[in-house]
């Protein structure tokens, strides 16, 4: 009973927030409520027994996306006052109709599929049954980095392409990212330096823990990469990292390192193991850990650079 009450409250919160996000008159409100929406989604994932997703959503969905949205909001605001924009051209009743149709379709698909007799043989059951040969104990990590590693490889490529495309479209540094870079100065609030001195090592530690523990419990490269990216956002905002238009050699290597290493191990699998993207027997755990470490950096760095709106970052001594 109490579980139902909690789920109902959660659903009510999600729907109320979603409505405020799309319909609120004040744009800033929509942006902030979207971040809250991401946090509630994280709680929902936890309720649906998906702790891996809860971690990723809290760090990426609410954290990084929120930072990106707020910095874009500021860019829209800075030129002139908020522009309410012209009224909608689409009649409201038609919009309500289409929305109701889509909602009924999505909800209907879910309702019907849930009602069907569950099949005996599913990919998930197969994955769970063969967990022992995957080299890791967390089934989600096993699917991501062994059984369906092609998806993960493609995903890192998508992230890299998004970064390249953003570099093509973005303007000079002054107009990209969270605004002009300011050197951390004497006028900086007194609490910022102690916060960074405390948070930076803690975050690196947490990311390493997430990466390592992803083998047997919720966590992994995605969550670790997102946590590291959050640290990068903090350092960029406080002026500890200076944006540059060109990435350094180390940054270039890190950006492509995940894809190159993953592809190389995957191609080698065609010769040494049974198929492309298969790991040789007995080496699964070591190779997955190696790939995940490269992926963590290959996920964190593009995310920070996308936020920073720059091609590279340099350490700036205060």
């Amino acid at each position: 009973m109490t579980e139902w009450a909690f789920d109902a409250l959660l659903a009510g919160g999600l729907l109320g927030l979603a409505w405020q996000i799309v319909a609120s008159r004040v744009l800033f409100r929509s942006v902030v409520l979207f971040i809250v929406f991401g946090l509630l989604m994280a709680v929902t994932w936890a309720r649906l027994h998906a702790p891996d997703l809860a971690l990723a959503e809290a760090a990426i969905g609410a954290g990084i996306t929120g930072a990106l949205l707020l910095s874009a909001y500021r860019a829209f605001l800075s030129r002139r006052g908020t522009d309410p924009g012209p009224p909608p051209v689409f009649p409201r009743w038609a919009a309500v109709g289409v929305a109701a149709l889509v909602g009924a379709l999505v909800g209907g698909i879910g309702w019907v599929v849930v009602g069907l007799e569950p099949p005996e043989q599913t990919a998930g059951r197969e994955a769970l049954a063969h967990l022992a040969i995957s080299g890791v104990e967390n089934p989600v990590t096993a699917v991501l980095l062994n059984f369906r590693s092609i998806d993960t490889l493609s995903e890192v490529v998508v992230l890299f392409v998004a970064f390249l495309a953003a570099r093509v479209v973005a303007q000079d540094l002054a107009h990209a990212g969270p605004g002009d870079w300011l050197r951390a100065s004497r006028n900086e609030p007194v609490l910022v330096q102690p916060l960074i001195a405390f948070i930076a090592p803690m975050t690196v530690l947490a990311a390493g823990y997430l990466l390592w523990s992803g083998e047997h419990q919720p966590g992994g490269a995605f969550q670790a990469g997102a946590v590291l990216a959050a640290l990068g956002v903090l350092l960029r905002l406080t002026g500890r990292l200076r944006p540059t238009s060109e990435p350094s050699l180390a940054e270039r290597l890190s950006l492509v390192g995940g894809v190159v290493l993953f592809s190389a191990i995957g191609l080698a699998g065609a010769g040494v193991a049974s198929a492309v993207l298969a790991y040789p027997e007995g080496w699964e755990y070591e190779l997955i850990l190696l790939v995940e470490t490269a992926l963590t950096i290959a996920i964190a760095l593009p995310l920070v650079l996308l936020f920073s709106g720059s091609g590279g970052l340099r350490r700036e001594v205060r």
Binding site: P189, L191, V192, L195, I199
Partner: peptide, 16 residues
């Protein structure tokens, strides 16, 4: 503890 630290700094920044 970590939430306390984050809350302290963000409250300070907002107040400032």
């Amino acid at each position: 503890g970590v939430a306390l630290i984050a809350a302290t700094v963000s409250a300070h920044l907002i107040a400032r």
